[in-house]
């Protein structure tokens, strides 16, 4: 028992030591003295630009989040339900809907991470911490790219659902033509 505990503690300590190893050489590109001087000089203008980007992003996110949810709630879920009531096989549609919902959750989480980072960035004192500010810009850019990736994934699911509807229509052509009201 003591041995197991000792091994566990050693593993935790090793993991902790490895995670705390400096990785700045790989993560943050070298900032030249000229760049540092420029960041210090143009700090208010850079912060103003970032604040404007941050403010402009907010309604885009609110509108997108609302639209993506409505696509799921007011279109996809309704067709799925209607097909199920009419006793069609909806397994493909349900799978895509679930993946779409997961992608939407991922989009919200990615935006939250980006927004938190952007909020920290616009509050930073780039005159006092120009290197930290430069690194934070790089980190926030990566997080913004993550938001864009999550949007691409959502659009992929939107396309997949559209294709599934087309395939469904082809596969059930005769039944869709000769349908009687339920």
């Amino acid at each position: 028992m003591k041995f197991v505990l000792a091994v566990l503690l050693a593993a935790i300590a090793t993991a902790g030591a490895l995670s705390s190893l400096p990785t700045s050489a790989q993560e943050s590109p070298t900032v030249t003295d000229e760049q540092i001087a420029h960041i210090k000089n143009a700090c208010p203008a850079i912060i103003a630009t970032l604040s404007q980007i941050h403010a402009n992003d907010a309604p885009v996110y609110v509108n997108r989040n609302q639209a993506y949810f409505s696509i799921s709630d007011k279109l996809i879920a309704r067709l799925n339900g209607r097909l199920a009531v009419n006793r069609f096989d909806t397994s493909t549609f349900v799978r895509i809907s679930n993946e779409y919902a997961a992608a939407l959750t991922q989009f919200r989480a990615a935006y939250k991470r980006y927004d938190d980072s952007m909020s920290d960035l616009v509050r930073m004192n780039c005159v006092r911490q120009p290197v930290g500010f430069y690194d934070k810009v790089a980190e926030t850019r990566e997080l913004r790219a993550g938001v864009q990736q999550s949007i691409k994934k959502l659009h992929g699911k939107i396309d997949e659902y559209r294709s599934a509807v087309g395939t469904f229509q082809e596969q059930n052509e005769s039944r869709l033509k000769g349908v009687t009201n339920d």
Binding site: T32, Q35, I46, Y114, R144
Partner: peptide, 18 residues
């Protein structure tokens, strides 16, 4: 296109290496 990361590009913000 939304949330293009290029708006935070160091050259766009004017903090890139010359």
């Amino acid at each position: 296109d939304a949330f293009n990361p290029s708006v935070l590009d160091e050259h766009t913000l004017g903090i890139g290496a010359p």
